[in-house]
């Protein structure tokens, strides 16, 4: 295993509070919510596991003999939270919708699409699963349409609502501290003031910096 301090990116002399802060920041970054319906969810899960292990190791080293390590974020069993749908009756013999759900979980999007295309009865769940496939393919506008349709057909379903909220509300996702600009809201800052401009990069040519400020 890697040096746990290196994994958390803190010196071994860091205080308990600093270690905890570093751990929390990383756990927020790789949290399942940021990788829901993301084809890279398994990589994020690995990261989270590594971070949890590093944090636990440091806790144990520091509290040797004095009680148990503190609780940790996420990353329990395989696929808990990372794009999994917690589908219960896990059998390949399920209904086409259940099989589509499992195909999505395995990231077999081609099969999921085939299964969904063959279903003529388009329920709220059908739209939800279609949306999940679109999310993973990066077809985000179609995903939005399908998630909205699922929510309109079954407004009380928390799973569909959460999927729609995750896509619609960009404020929930991880950002490093202090980064708060959105496409809809530039926070009042001036555009050109802060953006890299090639005439700054090549500052000796063509009167360069004239345009940068």
């Amino acid at each position: 295993m890697n040096d746990p301090y290196q994994v958390l990116n803190v010196p071994s002399t860091a205080s308990d509070e600093e270690v905890k802060k570093a751990y929390r920041e990383l756990a927020r970054k790789y949290h399942p919510d940021n990788y829901h319906d993301n084809p890279l969810a398994d990589l994020a899960q690995e990261k989270m596991k590594e971070i949890n292990e590093a944090y636990n190791t440091i806790q144990k080293m520091r509290q040797r003999g004095s009680g148990t390590a503190q609780s940790q974020y996420g990353g329990h069993g395989p696929y808990s939270g990372y794009g999994g749908y917690g589908y219960g009756g896990s059998s390949a013999q399920g209904t086409p919708l259940q099989r589509a759900r499992m195909a999505i979980q395995r990231n077999d999007l081609h099969l999921a699409e085939q299964l969904l295309a063959a279903i003529s009865d388009r329920t709220a769940e059908w739209y939800f699963l279609r949306g999940a496939v679109c999310m993973r393919r990066g077809w985000l506008d179609e995903a939005l349409r399908h998630f909205r349709q699922a929510c309109a057909m079954d407004p009380g379903n928390p799973e569909y609502r959460q999927a729609l909220e995750r896509l619609e509300n960009s404020g929930q996702a991880y950002r490093p501290a202090g980064f708060e600009v959105f496409t809809s809201d530039c926070g009042g800052g001036s555009l050109c003031g802060g953006l890299m401009c090639s005439y700054c990069l090549c500052n000796s040519c063509m009167g360069g910096t004239f345009f940068c400020r």
Partner: peptide, 10 residues
């Protein structure tokens, strides 16, 4: 985390 949002906003 910022530059692209700013360009989009502009």
């Amino acid at each position: 985390y910022e530059g692209l949002y700013r360009v989009g906003n502009g």
